[in-house]
């Protein structure tokens, strides 16, 4: 059972890395500010799932707390940028 789970996670890992690189291309060359924030958002929520899968692969349960922190704080970046854009529209 342990061999099966390890082989499955090793097979899944390159697809995750490929999609992270594609997300990062959009985040680095996004033409406007909302595009960049959207790409960072999607990339970080997927990174949280990736960290949980890696915690199973490394067999160390203490690594699980980082995924919760990452998923919570990247939401605040959304709200900051949204408030900045709306405040610019309303004239401070």
């Amino acid at each position: 059972m342990k061999e099966l789970i390890s082989m499955f996670i090793i097979a899944v890992l390159p697809i995750y890395i490929t999609s992270f690189i594609l997300y990062m291309v959009r985040a680095l060359r996004g033409p406007t500010v909302p595009d960049t924030v959207l790409a960072i958002d999607a990339m970080t929520f997927d990174l949280a799932a990736f960290l949980v899968i890696l915690a199973i692969f490394f067999e160390s349960p203490i690594l699980i707390a980082t995924a919760i922190v990452l998923a919570l704080w990247i939401y605040s970046l959304d709200i900051y940028v949204a408030k900045y854009l709306e405040a610019k529209e309303m004239g401070e």
């Binding site: 960072i40 990339m43 990452l70």
Partner: peptide, 11 residues
């Protein structure tokens, strides 16, 4: 945009 690139780096 510079702030957002810095956020990518910290992630």
């Amino acid at each position: 945009k510079a702030v957002l690139y810095s956020a990518i780096q910290s992630t």
